[in-house]
Simulated assay, not measured.
Amino acid sequence: MTEFNHSLAVSASGLKAQAARLRHLSENIANADTPGYRRKTIPFQTAFTPRDGVNRVTTGQVKLDPTKLEQIFDPSHPLADETGHFDGSNVNLVVEIADAREAQRSYEANLKMFDQAREMSSGLMDLLRR
C-alpha cells in the first residue's frame, strides 16, 4: 500500500506546484498593463522526504523577471518623466498564455495520475476484501 501512497503524494505535490504556477501566471496577466510591474516566475524543485523516502515537487522562492521594463511614451500620463516616458511592465501576454496552457495541462496530467493511483488502490482493497 505504501507505493500507492507514494504515488498519491507525488501527484499531490505536482498539483500543488502547478496550482501555484497558475496563480502567479494569472497575476502576471492581470497586471500586464500596470506601470512598473515585473513578471513573476516560480521555479520548481525536488524535495526528498526521508520519513517516507519520496521525492516531491516543491516550489522555490518567487522571482521577479529582471528583463528591462517597456518604455511607454505618453506625456499626459501622471507617471511620465520630463521626456514623456514611463515604465510599463515586462509581461508578454503571448508567453504568459502559453505558460498557462502548459501549466494547465501539467495539472491535468497530475490529476489523472492521482485518480489512477486512487482507483488502483481502491481496486486492490476490493480484491483483498473477497
Rank of each mutant, 00 (worst) to 15 (best):
P78V: 05
L128Q: 00
D52N: 11
E119F: 11
L124Q: 05
S76D: 10
V94C: 06
R51K: 11
P50F: 13
S122V: 06
L22D: 03
N92E: 11
R101L: 15
D52T: 05
P50G: 14
L124S: 10
T46Q: 15
F73I: 03
A9D: 00
E102D: 06
S106D: 06
L111T: 13
M125L: 15
Q116M: 12
D33I: 01
V54D: 13
V62A: 13
L128V: 03
A19T: 10
A17E: 06
I42T: 00
E27T: 05
D81W: 01
T41Q: 10
M120G: 02
A117L: 03
S26T: 14
F48K: 04
L15T: 07
R118K: 13
G88T: 01
G84H: 04
F48H: 10
V95R: 00
K63A: 14
D87L: 12
P43H: 09
V62G: 04
N55T: 11
Q116E: 10
N28W: 10
A103I: 09
P43L: 07
A100E: 05
E70H: 10
T67I: 03
G123T: 09
L127Q: 07
N92K: 01
D126A: 14
P43A: 09
A47M: 09
T59M: 01
A103P: 14
A103S: 15
I42L: 09
S26L: 03
E3L: 05
Y107N: 07
S106V: 06
G60M: 13
M1A: 12
F4C: 00
T67E: 12
H85Q: 08
T34M: 07
R129T: 08
D33R: 03
E82K: 08
Q61I: 12
G60V: 10
I72S: 04
E102V: 12
R23Q: 14
D87H: 13
M125F: 15
N110Q: 08
F48Y: 15
K112R: 14
S121W: 11
R118P: 00
P35A: 11
A30M: 06
T83L: 06
I72R: 01
K112M: 14
T59N: 04
A20E: 08
